[in-house]
Design a protein around this nucleic acid. Sequence first.
DNA 1: GCTCAAAGTGTCATGACGTGACACATGTCG
DNA 2: CGACATGTGTCACGTCATGACACTTTGAGC
Lengths: 222, 222
Amino acid sequence: MARYNPAMTAPAPETVPTPPPGRRERKKQATREALLDAAFRLFGEKGYEATTVEEIADAVDVSARTFFRYFASKEDVALTTQEEQFYAVLDAFARRPPEESVLTAIRTAGTLLVEALEADGRDGRPMSRFDCLMRLTEESPALRAGSMERTRRKNDEMTRVIAVRMGADPETDLRPRMFAAMASTAFMVAAEAHRTGLGGFDSFADALDAAFEVLETGFRDY
Amino acid sequence: MARYNPAMTAPAPETVPTPPPGRRERKKQATREALLDAAFRLFGEKGYEATTVEEIADAVDVSARTFFRYFASKEDVALTTQEEQFYAVLDAFARRPPEESVLTAIRTAGTLLVEALEADGRDGRPMSRFDCLMRLTEESPALRAGSMERTRRKNDEMTRVIAVRMGADPETDLRPRMFAAMASTAFMVAAEAHRTGLGGFDSFADALDAAFEVLETGFRDY
DNA sequence: GCTCAAAGTGTCATGACGTGACACATGTCG
DNA sequence: CGACATGTGTCACGTCATGACACTTTGAGC
């Protein structure tokens, strides 16, 4: 497993679809970011359940109603980050060299990304959203539930990409879907192991690697 | 689980822990059952989200406050059934002959139970809670989320039982936990396939068998 | 049978999440 | 500037969930 991170994504050179964002759009983005920041700061200080939407909105000096125009729910503001991370993994997976097996490609893509995220949180930074979310997910069953449901929905997309690599039809062949779900399972078990200290892994990346190793070895011979 | 079908489990001959349930206890059980019945009837008629706790309580002629003394939440009343089914599988798994592999034992236990549940729903019965719950879970993301989170929590118990069969230490060895999670995954993917018609399985049991077959075959060679 | 304590229930109040309606203000563009 | 679109605040409402307290039923002991 590669241990460091070779320049991951060369963002596809898009055909300048950037109509210079006007003041309105900029303000919107600023508000959104401010809400995210306030939310994670408060979540970190008081916990997820104990933080109310009103507090988040107040911290940014907008009405609670406005909060809900940016995020569908309190859960949403917490899990948006995770959603982005999922797409990062999906993207990295799709870019792995085609000669890699499905499992190897997912494993590599996932591990590299997690390592990058973890490195990001070090060097005295207050606490990355990644780490914060990890703690929140440990603390709140409701959030965990939401997180899993989102993962499940995203698995449709993962399934399609896997099916392409396998040359299988995801509508009739259960394997792509099962593989996607099994990979998600590896992530979730690794997260749980890391959060709760189970297995004594030093990092999420280590736990994830161990989880994938189990997938690699298989289930049959026990 | 069957609405009737008295004592499918030969209850371990316990040392007469049955202090003849008095009128109080009987009334409580009756209320609980009535709430469950009303809930599933309304859920079936109007859907999960559209049914309010007040309606359920009214249907049984108790206050909404009382409802919450029987069930922690609306979700709870819907998923209690599933919880029982989980324990049925866990129990059946634990009773499989010790020479069976972990995977075979889970697969057999799960498939047998699902077949029994499905058979239960046939022959003109209105609609078993099993089927109803399947539909609800399809319809409501919130319920699905809750269902998965509960499954995840239950996996701790499954992990322990698997660890025993493997002779492994669940605190340091990730495998039992991963196997438990993978088995749950098989159930969830099968349920999804069955609900959405994906793969064209005639029954949940068929879908489940196919999902387990993927686990059996493994992930490595694709 | 009577009394008393425990357990179950109803009522009221409260708080948080989430949404619809409508008016206001702030930007965007001709 | 003026017209229009878009974002925001305010108000009202419905639902879930919980705490507090009082009232009733039930079970147990005498």
